[in-house]
């Protein structure tokens, strides 16, 4: 039986900490879990192998209350607008998914494709880890596998705030930034570009497609998960040592 935790808003550190706490819960025999969440305040997450100083305008983020956090998954820097996206995580025993990492990306991403299709948006999976519409990216995901547990998390873009997105990213020259925004507009898209629906409807569509064919129940974090998450947020994800290790 899958446990489904529906959209909650947390800060960046708690969001990453909750994902890790759920991994520990699943490792210790807890139910596989699907979680939908949002970010408040808006934040930038960077991939495990990225350098904060190379990727993020930390000064701009600090001045504007935008958190910066390193993920435990690889992949690129993502701007998580507090109103502009839905993030998901799928956390389950590794053996519930194909051994091939790329095949497991494909499997989980197909749930997103199905969710978008149910609101009238035709998208497709583009290996390695993207979902695209006419070559424009609408969703990106990242995966890690540790201690027999698979964690895949990713975002589905609901609306775009490209100006803030590219101010958060480290671009020294305004001209380059303008070019990047124009170029990004041709490479990135969002649900709002195709249909005018409330974000709750997108959430419900994803919930239905992720749960399709599964035995599942709505659930919440256990007290232990919450305690683990609070500990990890404070002692790992908020620390300079973690966020600036590369």
């Amino acid at each position: 039986m899958w446990r489904v935790i529906t959209a909650s808003k947390n800060d960046a550190f708690m969001n990453m900490a909750v994902d890790e706490a759920i991994c520990n819960y699943v490792r210790d025999g807890g139910e596989p879990t699907i979680r939908f969440y949002m970010w408040n305040p808006s934040a930038v997450s960077i991939g495990y192998f990225q350098s904060v100083m190379d990727e993020v305008d930390v000064e701009f983020c600090n001045k504007n209350g935008i958190s910066v956090v390193r993920r435990r998954t690889g992949g690129g820097a993502v701007y998580h607008d507090s109103h502009g996206e839905i993030t998901y995580s799928v956390i389950a025993p590794q053996d519930m998914f194909p051994e091939s990492i790329l095949q497991s990306y494909k499997m989980i991403c197909s749930w997103i494709v199905d969710g978008l299709e149910s609101i009238g948006i035709n998208s497709s999976f583009k290996p390695i880890n993207d979902i695209i519409i006419n070559e424009k990216k609408i969703s990106g995901s990242a995966q890690t596998r540790k201690e027999g547990v698979l964690l895949q998390h990713g975002t589905v873009l609901y609306s775009l705030n490209l100006d803030t997105m590219f101010r958060c990213l480290k671009v020294s020259d305004e001209k380059i930034r303008d070019k990047m925004i124009n170029s990004a507009r041709q490479r990135v898209t969002c649900v709002n570009d195709y249909c005018d629906i409330p974000i709750q409807k997108l959430h419900n569509s994803l919930l239905n497609s992720f749960c399709y064919g599964k035995e599942w129940r709505f659930g919440e974090l256990t007290e232990k998960e919450l305690a683990d998450a609070n500990f990890l947020a404070k002692n790992k994800y908020k620390t300079h040592q973690w966020n600036f290790w590369r």
Partner: peptide, 15 residues
Amino acid sequence: LKITGDFFMHPEESI
């Protein structure tokens, strides 16, 4: 040598 970027490596710590 330091390698950074938006790639994936499993397990991550093996970088």
